[in-house]
């Protein structure tokens, strides 16, 4: 049965189109730009008819940027690897630390428990610049400046609260009776955690891990201040295209396309877990 009138459908279509254009057009335009030279990009009026070129991508991949002013070495592929390595290790460590912590916060009431959880969340409230100045001083003292370990450590400020709070909610949604049933069946507490709690919170863990990965990937300020060229992720690395001889729009576009590709692929892959309603039907609601 269709209850919507034609007018409603038309309005709905127009609105959806507006939203899609608003959000997708920039991405579409960036992809187009990445296949153009600076000359065709800066053409007035702009046109979507052009001769595609792979020079931007080849420049990024080979690491040699040829511009009107001469040649420039860039480390974009290194930046891409840094981004991947930093984000993945940060999320991994945050998962290892955050999942048991989230479980503890969800299942046990302990002294100052709520305060600790809230303090961890408050790391997300403070502007990063607030902590950066003291941190950069500490890091110099500790010799952590421009090290992967130092960056991964600081990235925990981004990843850990996200994982802790999202996964905690999922653990709280699991009926404690399911865990009780598993223990009474003759399994230890640890086994119950691994075989029941973690698998059932998997959609939440996937969502939190994905979000944390994207947040870590998109981080700019921490790496800008605490790392130099060879440890910098793509977000900072893209600055290299703003050169003395002008802004390399084509390369920036290609760099953006390459840098959103992994997170996009990850999001598409993890979507499956995000929608999987595992708990449905197991407990009478």
């Amino acid at each position: 049965m269709d209850h919507t009138s034609t007018l409603e459908q038309v309005i709905r279509g127009v609105l959806i189109t507006c939203v899609l254009v608003f959000f997708l057009f920039p991405i579409f335009w960036i992809v187009l730009m990445s296949f153009q030279t600076n000359e065709t990009i800066l053409r007035i009026p702009p046109s979507i008819v052009f001769e595609p070129t792979l020079s931007n991508y080849s420049a990024l991949i080979t690491g040699r940027l040829e511009s009107a002013a001469g040649n420039l070495d860039i480390a974009f592929m290194k930046n891409l690897w840094n981004s991947f390595f930093l984000s993945a290790s940060s999320v991994l460590i945050a998962l290892v630390l955050g999942i048991p912590a989230a479980y503890a916060f969800a299942r046990f009431r302990f002294r100052l428990g709520e305060d600790i959880a809230f303090t961890l969340l408050s790391f997300r409230f403070a502007p990063p610049l607030l902590v950066l100045l003291p941190l950069s001083l500490y890091f110099k003292q500790l010799g952590l400046t421009n090290t992967y370990i130092g960056l991964i450590w600081v990235y925990q400020l981004i990843c850990l609260p996200l994982i802790l709070w999202i996964v905690r909610g999922y653990f709280e949604d699991i009926s404690p009776d399911i865990e009780h049933a598993y223990r009474i069946s003759g399994n230890s507490w640890l086994k119950t955690f691994w075989k029941i709690a973690v698998p059932l919170a998997k959609p939440g863990i996937a969502a939190a891990g994905l979000l944390a990965f994207i947040f870590a990937w998109n981080n700019f300020v921490f790496a800008l201040i605490l790392a130099s060229a060879d440890k910098q992720p793509v977000t900072v690395g893209a600055l290299a295209f703003v050169t003395a001889s002008g802004i390399q729009y084509g390369q920036i576009a290609a760099a953006i396309v390459l840098s959103i590709a992994p997170t996009l692929a990850l999001a598409l892959y993890a979507q499956r877990y995000l929608v999987e309603g595992l708990s449905l039907g197991a407990v009478k609601g």
């Binding site: 009926s175 009776d177 399911i178 009780h180 049933a181 598993y182 029941i196 698998p199 059932l200 595992l278 708990s279 449905l280 039907g281 197991a282 407990v283 009478k284």
Partner: peptide
């Protein structure tokens, strides 16, 4: 258990 508490997975 009253709510069955089966292991959904």
């Amino acid at each position: 258990f009253q709510n069955f508490a089966l292991f959904p997975h």
